[in-house]
Every structure is written in C-alpha cells, then in structure tokens.
Amino acid sequence: MASSNKKQTTDRKAIISGFMTYVLEHDGYPKSVYKFCKEIKISEEDFYKFFGSLESVQKSIWNTFFETTINAIQKNKEYTDFSSREKMLTLFYTLFEMMTLNRSYVLFVLKQNDVPFKNMSQLKGLRLHIKNFAADLIEEDNDEKMFKLTKNPVSVFSEGAWLQFLFLLNFWIGDESAGFEKTDIAIEKSVNTIFDLFDNTPLNNVLDFGKFLWKEKVMWN
C-alpha cells in the first residue's frame, strides 16, 4: 500500500511538471487532454486517475506551491515555538521563494493576454489554504486572551491575510530588485503592520508601511 501511494504522488507531480513545461514551451495552455497526454507521453486513462480536467491541473499547481511551502517550514524544528507573527512571515517568505523558483510560469499565467490576474479562479484553492492558515493563527492567539473584547475577529483576519497576499503577489510581479529584495521588505513591513493593527499599536508601522508603498509607487511611475 505504501509503495502505491508513493507511485501516485510521483505520477501526480510528473503531470503537474509536464503541464508547466508545456505551457512555457508552447507559450500557451494545451488545447485538449488528448494533445497534452500525447506531448508528455502518458495515456488519457492515466491522466484521469489524478485530474478531471486541464483546469484542475492549473488549480493543483497553486495548491502544490502551498503544500510544498508548508512541508518545508514544518521541517524547521523551531517553527512550532514561533509566534503567530513569525509563522505568518515564514509562510510568506517561503511561499514567495517557492514561486520565485517557478517565476516564469507564474508570470505567464497571471499576465496572459496582458490582463493581470484575469484567471483568478485557479487561485481559489490557494485562497482557502491561506485563509485557513491565518484563521488558525488568530484562533491560537485568541485562546490566550482572557476577555472577549480583546479577541480578534477570525474572519476579518483571514480575509485580510488573503488580500495581503494578493498585494504582495502584485508587488512581486513588478519587483525588479536583485534577489527580489524589495518583496522581502514588503512582506516584513506588511505582516508587521497587520499584526500591529491587531495589537492596537499601529500608528508608527502603518505610517512606515505607507511611506514605503508611496516611495515604490513614485519610483515605478
């Protein structure tokens, strides 16, 4: 049974890898499952063991980015002792490192037809993952607070984390700094600002973050 699971994981990854390679080499999506399977030399039967459509492969790629990120950060023995703020920073840093390794693919699918973020439907699974991750963090923090009035709304925080990711994703797309250093700065400032807002000590960091965004906007224009 264990060997069967291992084979399934390998086959799934091979299809995802083949799909990403196909998109980049053909500068477009496969027109059909038949043509895609012929290209990567697998049968349609094998394809449908793992995916119901080409669209489901697209969505799985983003889910795989997240799952690989979680697996990587959980290997850090110190991670469990991190504060919620440190865990969120670690998630975003690692997730964007993962996407940087696949930047050509990500840029293609998000900027296809010169319409940024046109195909947002493929990010639905990733949105749920990030919102659940953020919800777990705020729930842990709320458990440590004695009074209801001091507890933070989970739904607001989780939705804010997703919007924060979209902002950072858009920032990363336009980042031309070496090693995407400016994206790292944006991650640090944005995460710290959000947590400071929930800790009721926002002013200095909100202003600092605002100045940073304004500076970047002026530089881009």
Rank of each mutant, 00 (worst) to 15 (best):
S121Q: 12
R12W: 06
F209N: 00
L54F: 06
P153M: 03
K124L: 09
L163P: 04
N170L: 14
Q122W: 01
K77M: 04
V191H: 00
F167N: 10
V218I: 11
F147V: 15
N170S: 15
P202E: 04
D141A: 11
I130H: 00
T94S: 13
S60W: 05
S155Q: 14
L101K: 07
V218E: 07
D11F: 06
T193C: 07
A161H: 03
E139H: 11
S158H: 07
D143L: 11
G179E: 08
F157C: 05
M20A: 08
A2L: 12
D143G: 11
F117M: 11
M219V: 14
N204A: 10
V218F: 07
L95Q: 03
K131R: 14
E144A: 14
L168N: 00
L54R: 02
K211L: 12
C37M: 06
I130Q: 00
K124Y: 09
S177N: 11
F165P: 00
T90R: 04
L163K: 09
N200T: 09
K148F: 15
N170W: 13
L110E: 13
G174I: 14
T21E: 15
F212R: 03
F133N: 05
F96K: 02
K49P: 05
M98T: 07
K77L: 06
F117A: 07
S158F: 02
F36T: 01
T150G: 14
G160I: 02
I16H: 05
V109F: 04
C37W: 00
M120E: 09
A14Y: 06
E67F: 03
M99N: 02
R103T: 14
F108K: 11
T94Q: 11
F209T: 00
E39Q: 13
E67D: 15
D208V: 03
S158T: 12
K111N: 14
G125N: 01
T69G: 02
M219E: 15
H129T: 02
M1N: 07
L168E: 02
Q8N: 15
V115S: 07
G28I: 11
